[in-house]
Design a protein around this nucleic acid. Structure first.
Lengths: 201, 201
DNA sequence: AAGTTGACGTGACGTTTGTCATGTCCGCGA
DNA sequence: TCGCGGACATGACAAACGTCACGTCAACTT
């Protein structure tokens, strides 16, 4: 019996996935959570063999939850299941200790199969996503550029960003400018969209 | 037996929802599609009693699909099931002929119940969303303001937008400005985010 | 020891935005 | 027929933005 924990914020999807998995003879859904910051306590209680983690979650994102989980319960296999196959997500998830990365776009039957392959020690990665991650290359943005870009997503003005990050306006302008250059964008808005769709954040 | 059509682009979610519904004794999933523009032909073939439509779909969005469906098969009850409860979506969905509007955040058991209530002739709307739609009020943007804002979502410059819409740059600036005013935003980026999160687009 | 790289900063420059006043044209209800 | 509101336009102006040249400093190579 494979003991599975499901972390997914949309209740209807979470419930549907868990009944789907519960129909499998060799799979037992032992825990369900709807927030990233509930993963750890639930995992400690339920002792799952596999943790199925969504990335977009309130509280704590799935990648951070994966890192914490891998640290505290290394014997627990981690499988990321997410809506968007951002190349950057894949790399960060693997760095966080995930054994697999599958996207919600695929057929439903693939889910149980992926879980079985993951517990068997295999690394299961969507092939389309794998080549995308390789062709896109690593994250070109420095930490500060990510900080500044991340603070610009909500449409804040440079002065606001500078105040929030305790930087001078000139420095913020420079980081924004170099981020725009690196992403090949023509302004901050395009740069933010590029960075988000690649999973650099 | 309630005959149900499911339209949802993420294959894993679609499959999970359909097995979830297939477990109900009185529900029969007679069609599944992953694109908005496949809804019509599938509905004509399967003759469902209820169409469960996601809004975010490739090809044709769920609201447009609902309108077409309501026009061609008026006896088919339409239920919107979507990730984001934008107040504007709700209004447009009801205008398009939907009988219900539920969000994926809710518990999974609610889905079958909503379908039964919808076929019984009831209008089923998430109560939280209903008050949100009422407090938010109707879409304050004029058609042109929506056009211009919609052309600005990808970070295009004013000159680009003007060229795309065959307007002068000054006009585009004016519409953008009034849209910013109406949304209470401080620049176009905030205005776009406001408009999107309200479902005005 | 010299060179490179990245974090951080300044000042200046031209361009793009957002706002405002003002105007024309058209359609529609009183 | 008058007035009103919406679409569309222009010109002007201040603020914000994106770029560039230039600089310091610490860390890490070679």
């Amino acid at each position: 019996m494979i003991r599975v924990l499901i972390a997914e914020d949309q209740g209807m999807v979470r419930g549907a996935l868990s009944t789907l998995l519960a129909l499998e003879d060799d799979i037992d859904v032992v825990a369900q959570v709807g927030r990233g910051d509930e993963v750890m306590s639930a995992a400690r209680r339920a002792q799952p063999d596999v943790a199925l983690l969504d990335i977009e979650m309130p509280g704590l994102d799935g990648i951070a939850a994966a890192a914490a989980l891998h640290d505290a319960l290394p014997q627990c296999t981690i499988l990321m299941l997410t809506a968007f196959g951002r190349p950057g997500y894949l790399r960060r998830a693997m760095d966080a200790g995930a054994s697999g990365f599958i996207v919600k776009d695929g057929p439903a039957e693939e889910l149980a199969a992926a879980i079985r392959r993951a517990v068997a020690g295999e690394r299961v990665i969507d092939p389309v996503l794998a080549v995308a991650a390789l062709t896109a290359g690593p994250n070109p943005l420095t930490e500060r550029e990510r900080d500044v870009l991340g603070a610009a997503v909500d449409g804040s003005t440079i002065a606001t960003i500078a105040a929030r990050l305790f930087l001078s306006e000139g420095t913020v302008r420079n980081y924004l400018s170099s981020a725009i250059q690196k992403t090949g964008a023509r302004n901050r808005i395009e740069a933010v969209r590029q960075a988000q769709s690649n999973g650099w954040l």
